[in-house]
Design a protein around this nucleic acid. Sequence first.
DNA 1: AGGATGATATCC
DNA 2: GATATCATCCTC
Length: 206
Amino acid sequence: MGGEKSGEVEQRAFGGPDSGIFRGLPLPRDFYDRDPRLVARELLGHFLVNRTDGVEQIGRIVEVEAYLGPHDKAAHSSRGLTARTRVMFGPPGYAYVFMIYGMHFCMNVVTEKEGLASAVLLRAVEPIRNISGSASGPGRLSRAMNIDMRHNGWDMTSDSFFISSDPEIRRFQVILRPRVGVDYAGHWARRLLRYYIKGNACVSVP
DNA sequence: AGGATGATATCC
DNA sequence: GATATCATCCTC
């Protein structure tokens, strides 16, 4: 499972920014309790919803990266359990948010069961509702959707900050590429663990 | 190509 | 306690 090759996947599309209140439900915890490569691929086309600031912001996930666990030298969990990576070592379906370069936040969802310390980094969303500015790139995504350290450890099966699917379906192709910004990680830097929607204009590094 | 800007890991 | 590094972005 989780072979590193491109392929077709079903995309669930949202009716559009003017369709009224978004009624999508959070993906269940079981969704996240799987291999991060599978979760990464299936997150493409789904909707990240943030209502924690009183405004409903929605972005369609178009680019992600899988971090496989402590054996993955590019993953923060490869340094062991620390204060920062505590959430990543916890149960699936929680947000792992960290600060990078002193000014940006990166948003991940924890995958697999407690102790395995794998996650999926959200790298880009396509703005759907109440998003101003670019949301392409992990730092821009967090800025555009008002995600910060308050969301670290957030239960993504809650109804205030979650990922949801939608009844409408389109098709798209999934491209696999090496992850961005992890050149220090030796051969792990060359693994095809970045997934994005082919041809989507919001992908940060096509 | 280099700077911003602060938390973190890893050394003394 | 010091320092090198960083799952980035912006400007030059």
